[in-house]
Design a protein around this nucleic acid. Structure first.
Length: 483
RNA sequence: GCCAAGGUGGCAGAAUGGUUAAUGCGACGGACUGCAGAUCCGUUUCCUGGGGGUUCGAUUCCCUCCCUUGGCUCCA
């Protein structure tokens, strides 16, 4: 019924078979963004990683509930809001809408619920109360902290020993804490800050507690799969385990932990704090969402991916173009003749390969989501398809559809080659281009290549790329003049 | 300092206890073209950080050293 697969579990430190708690259902939670500013391409990488995970699981017959939280209240939002004279909640909403638009362009629509932290205040307060009641937390003048010493497993996920930590290495230690490793569950509001009522006075939740309050409500005290960037392993995910298992008394919180590798910028982590970020929106505008998506998937999700300005995405664009070209041709052929077009059938072995390849690709992804391996295999098929070249015209509609099967797999699982091409020109535009092409053909026929090249150049400036073939000239609409 | 993940061709980046270590980019040659591009064919045989060990055989497993990246309490 459902396909078996294996995944690298951070807690186990190895690739192991995935067993859902209640097959075929899988509860998936991924730490989402804090929308205090425009997202960068590092955030995009994590989102695409888990988008493919969710797509693959669904294809394999699992019923996935994919939850990605939105931290719409936090210190950075407050600081930013104050600086810009905007309400932090409104600021969060604004940037979250931008995030959603980017996700839509990137074909990442697999999230079922984007819960906002502020919609789960009752659950958060309930969980903090439970932790206080069970002795895992303590209150100090309106703040509530988790006492890490009460939770012996703390540090298991990241392999850290609490004694070996260096307090204050990056963040200064809050003097109200009993121990430097303790973390805030509830924070008193300072004047002018957004605040919610609580048994400990008006304030707001700490960062870690929102996730476990949300998952307890939506996915239960225990669930299957938790994802996020590796930078969240410690302390965020350790804190989640400590909170949830402490509050519910049930363990483990999750059965599998997946962590996506960092996107690096010239060998350094891309982060606002480092000041080396490249915006998600501007990148999508510049190279197109599909190129960016391909760039992410052309590496293993756990490996660090090094971004080189002026090189990485340009290389990805070339690589994607090579892979996409034969499929574009195939699609044009299908559109021209339709599915019912008569013609030759495929040689049996070609048909067999085309039909079997998607299953082989599933097998590759079922081994810890090796998207790069799958893409490598697709290139092989692309070459086969390319060899058919002009012979495509002789094939039946059904044969053409069969040839496209591996690419349709890529659309379904990897989200590449979307049917909806944003660079599609409207019909009236197309007929204008056609007029120009006819003029150029006449010029070429009479040997006036100066005029022919002039037309070609003029069209190129408008973003139209021509390809002369033996019997016709095809054209393609590029997103921008640079491509 | 401690913990974690890595070091593979010109570059990016896979995989595996065993025939020529994938794939892409780039480069070069050829076909096609008025030219170019796109596409197709071919070439790019000397690539697994250093040093030990286990093994018939190591890039893979073990030890050690060096280097890079991430984390060390509100970073995806």
């Amino acid at each position: 019924m459902v396909r078996a697969f294996r995944v690298y579990d951070t807690l186990a430190g190895e690739v192991r078979p995935f067993v859902p708690r209640v097959a075929p259902r899988i509860g998936l939670f991924v730490c989402g963004v804090t929308p205090y500013a425009e997202a960068h391409i590092g955030h995009g990488r994590t989102a695409i990683t888990f988008d493919v995970v969710a797509r693959a699981l669904r294809r394999w017959g699992y019923r996935v509930l994919y939850v990605q939280n939105v931290t719409n209240l936090d210190d950075r939002l407050i600081v930013r809001g104050l600086a810009e004279g905007r309400d932090p909640l409104e600021l969060a909403e604004f940037h979250f809408q931008g995030w959603l638009r980017a996700m839509d362009q990137l074909e990442a629509r697999s999230v079922n619920v984007y819960p906002f932290a502020t919609d789960y205040l009752p659950e958060i307060i309930e969980q903090i109360s439970a932790l206080l009641g069970r002795g895992f937390a303590y209150a100090v003048d309106g703040d509530v902290y988790y006492s890490v010493a009460k939770f012996p497993d703390y540090g298991r996920l990241s392999g850290q020993r609490v004694e070996a930590l260096r307090p204050g290495a990056r963040i200064e230690v809050d003097p109200k804490k009993r121990a430097p490793e303790d973390f805030a569950l509830w924070k008193t509001a300072k004047p002018g800050e957004p605040a919610w009522p609580s048994p400990w006075g008006p304030g707001r939740p700490g960062w870690h507690i929102e996730d476990t309050a949300i998952t307890a409500r939506l996915l239960g005290n225990q669930y299957d799969l938790h994802g996020g960037g590796t930078d969240l392993k410690f302390p965020h995910h350790e804190a989640e385990i400590a909170q949830a298992e402490g509050a519910s008394g049930q363990k483990p919180l999750v059965n599998y932990w997946m962590h996506a590798g960092m996107l690096q910028m010239h060998g350094e982590k891309m982060a606002k704090s480092v000041g080396n970020v490249i915006g998600l929106d501007e990148t999508i505008r510049r190279v197109g969402a599909e190129v960016l998506r391909f760039y992410y998937l052309n590496a293993h999700y756990r490996s660090p991916l090094n971004y080189e300005e002026g090189k990485s995405l340009e290389e990805a664009r070339e690589g994607l173009a090579t892979l996409a070209a034969p499929y574009r041709r195939l699609r044009e052929e299908i559109l021209r003749g339709g599915l019912t077009r008569p013609g030759r059938e495929l040689p049996p072995e070609v048909a067999r390969t085309a039909t079997a390849l998607p299953h082989r690709l599933d097998g590759i992804l079922a081994e810890d989501f090796q998207t790069r391996e799958a893409i490598a295999a697709l290139y092989g098929w692309g070459r086969t398809l390319g060899e058919w070249g002009s012979k495509l015209e002789t094939l039946s509609g059904a044969a053409l559809v069969t040839l496209g099967a591996p690419y349709r797999w890529a659309t379904e699982v990897l989200g590449l080659f979307p049917e909806r091409t944003s660079g599609k020109a409207p019909p009236e535009f197309a007929s204008l281009v056609q007029v120009a092409l006819e003029a150029r053909s006449r010029a070429r026929a009479r040997g006036d290549f100066g005029e022919a090249d002039h037309i070609r150049q003029a069209l190129l400036k408008a973003g139209i790329v021509l390809e002369d073939h033996s019997t016709e000239t095809r054209w393609q609409w590029k997103r921008d003049g640079s491509g």
